[in-house]
Nucleic acid binder design. Structure first.
Lengths: 230, 230
DNA sequence: AGTATAATTTAGGCAAGACTAAATTCAATA
DNA sequence: TATTGAATTTAGTCTTGCCTAAATTATACT
């Protein structure tokens, strides 16, 4: 109740949220690796986060942690901040999409609720960040999505890119060069089962391109109805 | 050389810069009062700041401190950040000018040089913040100004408002309501020596207004040539 | 079941930056 | 010059969040 959470606990909450939504819970060593601190430090911090009022995590020795409602709310708040800031940096300040993450990582901890709201308004209350990640709403609801990895498509399926993996700047630069951006629509016309390569054509490009699984597993799509009009 | 300065030392540098440009040096208790910490904590911090490499301050017991070149550079960097952010919040995010200070106070410590540069570009490399304070240039030069307190004007002098005191939100709201904003031009038509009140008329308003010294001492102006054209 | 190995926790420390209480120094005045 | 009060500094603590080393628990394999 004494105001803000420390930046350290916010960072823990973010990672725990991510790990828990992926694996159901987060282990000490996963957290340690992600935050680049030693496991002993994590244990220590988790114990504190479980004991404050209200508790941010549920912690039992040797069983990993999960977020309490209070912890999840704080995590979603950070997620909203982070993604709004990324979009703001991209749209308003002209940052390339592979450079927004680092800046957002620092800003997310210090912006006020007022600034969050002002940014959202200037951006037209956006639903997704530059990488297509869904932005939690003002009241911290995270709308469910249906997208799946591009690697699961087979000819002659058509799809629209919704979202790309956002934590690898090299990948992002590469995707941009290829034109694999959110909103782009494409047709798969060949699948090579040996290596999993996909041959695709983007609607707004003439030349087809060949994608390995390093890429197709990091790009997430939805089906789109009907063939491309000629 | 290990990267950034701590937020705490940046805060100390800011205050020392301000006090030193006003009084030539900064005393322990002045700093303590401004930062709302105890004098003992200040002594402690000053000793550290004088001992690191490169030293940020010159410190000798019982004699107050002044900034070294390294300290002054860091202070000006903060000043540039702060004022650019204030202007950005006002111009781009629509903050009222009495609400920018607090947000800037937190953001100034975390923005990158890249973000500083992008904000400056979006704003057209501005010279002054919303309160009229000069923004240090990219290479941290602070251009000298000639403005003086409005309270020193006498009828029938004319002047343009350059800058207002920026640390009192109530004052700022009041000034805005009166129309006493940077760029506004005015004519003084009466001075009351008893209480120092000034009767002025703003060029773009019909009604004259009467200002006490609480206000006229906080508004800074330059002379402007020639009478207002009717 | 019993043991090696990996993961986790405990215990004890450290640095930053705040605090309080006590000691010291400065400055002003009798 | 001696005194007194204010300012400053010293000394010792506290909290946060990290660390290393050692102890413990869990897991997995024979």
């Amino acid at each position: 109740m004494d105001g803000r959470l420390s930046q350290a606990s916010q960072d823990y909450l973010k990672i725990i949220y991510k790990l828990a939504s992926q694996y159901g819970r987060a282990t000490t060593s996963q957290i340690a690796e992600n935050l680049e601190v030693k496991p002993a430090s994590v244990t220590n911090m988790l114990q504190k986060m479980a004991q404050i009022e209200p508790p941010l995590v549920r912690y039992k020795k040797h069983q990993g942690v999960s977020l309490t409602p209070a912890g999840e709310e704080a995590a979603l708040e950070m997620l909203r901040h982070h993604r709004l800031i990324e979009l703001f940096l991209h749209e308003i300040l002209g940052y390339p999409w592979d450079e927004v993450h680092e800046e957002a990582e620092r800003l997310e901890h210090v912006i006020s609720e007022k600034m969050e709201r002002r940014m959202a308004e200037v951006l037209g209350n956006p639903m997704r960040d530059p990488h297509g990640q869904v932005i939690p709403s003002h009241d911290l609801e995270l709308t469910a999505t249906t997208e799946f990895p591009l690697s699961e498509l087979r000819p002659p399926q058509r799809a629209v890119i919704r979202r790309v993996h956002d934590e690898d700047a090299d990948l992002l630069r590469h995707l941009e060069q290829l034109g694999l951006l959110p909103q782009a629509t494409l047709t798969v016309f060949k699948h090579v089962s040996f290596d999993g390569n996909l041959h695709i054509k983007l609607d707004d490009q003439d030349e087809p391109i060949v994608l390995g699984t390093q890429i197709t597993s990091q790009v997430f799509v939805d089906f789109v109805a009907g063939p491309q009009l000629p």
